[in-house]
Amino acid sequence: MRLDVLKAMNSARAERRAGAIVTRLADGEQRFVAAERIDADPLGLQLEGALRMGKSAAVSVEGEDYFLTVQAPAPRLTLIGAVHISQALAPIARIAGLDVSIIDPRTAFATPDRFPDTPISAKWPDEALAEAPLDRYTAICLLTHDPKIDDPALAIALRADCFYIGALGSRKTHAKRVERMRARGFDEAALARIHAPIGLDIGAVSPAEIAVSIIGEIVASLRKKPLRAESAAA
């Protein structure tokens, strides 16, 4: 592999940009193709498919074998609320391979003592999310039970096309939330993307069990089908 090609790939990763390395297996000839340039590439069609699935793949084109090493941004998880569930969810999600961060403007909750291994921001969500924008490779959980904190984050998440949006609260709580978001101008298709009540139905009771049900739902959203935004764009 050429060092310059590898560097292009690694810097795309650092900036959360998608792309792929194309290697002709017969002789090792190589190039890096950024996601926004795939249309102009001779293997555009194959690259499009591999990037949509977020998976590296071997392809055969006109008798030549190629390998596409795909770089899709690492999935992230943003937790709104430095609450009890978050204390279990942050480490579980990290083990599952997600980059976790927490936002909670209530400084009594948002302390490094409670979350020793997780980046935590005590800013309001609109401010914190302006610094670290959400994208389609990000999952978000709204866990504060406080509309003043959850709602602005939810609005940003819906606009950013996060691959998973989960909101804590009963069906009744969620019905009120949907009402408020409707008033903010979100349509039914957008509101249907919110997972609420949050998590898979595994009968979870304790905060740790609820965390397990949430991570299961996030993994299903990530793996069971192509990322929603990407399949819509295809």
């Binding site: 592999m1 060092l3 590898l6 560097k7 790939m9 690694n10 990763r13 297996l25 590296s56 071997a58 390998f67 090493t69 770089q71 690492a74 083990i95 391979g97």
Partner: peptide
Amino acid sequence: LTRDEDVLAAAESWREAGRDVAIATVV
């Protein structure tokens, strides 16, 4: 756990540090 992306980042930094490096990929 080491992710595949981390492995490629390590490949770059090992090479930059002057080490000989080979990359093996399941194709």
